[in-house]
Design a protein around this nucleic acid. Structure first.
Lengths: 212, 212
DNA sequence: ACCTGAACACCGTTCAAGT
DNA sequence: ACCTGAACACCGTTCAAGT
């Protein structure tokens, strides 16, 4: 069970803040390891601490409770996905609506499928650790980037861009999660890219009265 | 904590199957009561049994484990919502695409908002008790009804109706859940109805190349 | 000053003992 | 035949005792 980092190579002394950050990192990695290896039911704080090579007491020095630990795990993952989506938005300024939607959808699906096992395994931790709030926080960030992108669209001027991006982001998560749960094979993912792009494009055109 | 049914009015004798069904019902109602009153964290099997007026041992005669109990709770709720959506599909045969989407979206939102507190409270139990599978099972049922409805549309002939309905159903859940979490005030719900209808109509037109 | 891990309260589940 | 609830293993969390 132990999966302690080789300690001998670490600097003998370290600023305590950096040491803390390193320990937090070790604990989070251990948590992921336990989650993937033993499943959520067996993911106890004791086991995580053991796997990280620290005592339970120490673990509770870095995280006030288990929920906080799970939340940190989920936040990291969601933030990574949100980063990619944000970059995609930034990169598609000035493009057509179709290209914009393709870019964002593809970035999102790519980020999610890059670590399918983790994306799937984090489903329960996310639910337990207030996932909706975490997702909401990151969604707002992506929502802004999405809105800013839409406003530069070459072939459409989107009204209600903020509501629209919030609805779209919430709508996209479900189908992607569904695909991940049911195996995430290449054919399914390819079809999903097309359909979710269609969902975005169609919706945005619809609420704008389909201006040419 | 006890919330035992008044037993004196019940028939002295009852066919054992019916008695079982009644006990299951009492336990499920108790579970809902505990969930709403004490929250998910405090929703222990002991407390549920106590509230239902049976022993823990008895509870485990009716449900093999806690997950199964939660699953039964979630299944009942999801089935109720699915019923409404199915009826809406049946009632909108032959209508325009716009009317169809309106009918289904409204039925879904109505069913969910009718018991906002329960819909919100069941979020965690659903996650823990294999919600995705339960939802998937019911979605397939609604998906068929949705597909059958679409094929009678007056103003469009939808291609890939089965994929489309699966994507749409998965897409709708997210935004609705989001609205429920953030208070579900009337103005927000009204806006949601319009936008989700737009999402359905726009998507279905888009993947059909917007045939007039 | 910081870490440790036995101890505590409580959980899900079982099963010997009752009726 | 069926119900009961003490007992068991394990969980999240704490804090007196160590270094």
């Amino acid at each position: 069970m132990k999966r302690v980092r080789a300690a001998s190579l670490n600097p003998r002394k370290m600023p305590s803040q950096a040491r803390s950050a390193a320990t937090v990192e070790v604990i989070l990695e251990a948590a992921i390891h336990v989650l993937l290896a033993n499943g959520f039911e067996k993911m106890s704080t004791t086991r995580i601490a053991e796997c990280a090579g620290v005592s339970v007491g120490s673990l509770y020095q870095y995280f006030p409770n288990k929920r906080a630990l799970l939340a940190a795990l989920v936040r990291r993952h969601v933030a990574r996905v949100a980063d990619r989506a944000e970059q995609a938005c930034a990169g598609a300024h000035g493009a057509t609506l179709q290209k914009m939607c393709e870019a964002v959808i593809n970035a999102f699906i790519d980020a999610k499928t890059e670590r399918v096992d983790l994306s799937r395994a984090l489903y329960l931790p996310a639910a337990l650790a207030g996932g909706p709030e975490i997702v909401k926080a990151q969604s707002e960030r992506v929502g802004k980037a999405f809105k800013a992108m839409l406003e530069t669209a070459a072939d459409i001027s989107v009204v209600q861009a903020d509501v629209a991006s919030a609805v779209l982001l919430a709508a996209i998560v479900g189908p992607v999660q569904m695909a991940l749960e049911s195996g995430a094979n290449a054919a399914l993912i390819a079809k999903l890219r097309v359909h979710l792009t269609g969902l975005c494009v169609g919706y945005l055109r619809e609420i704008n009265g389909y201006q040419q």
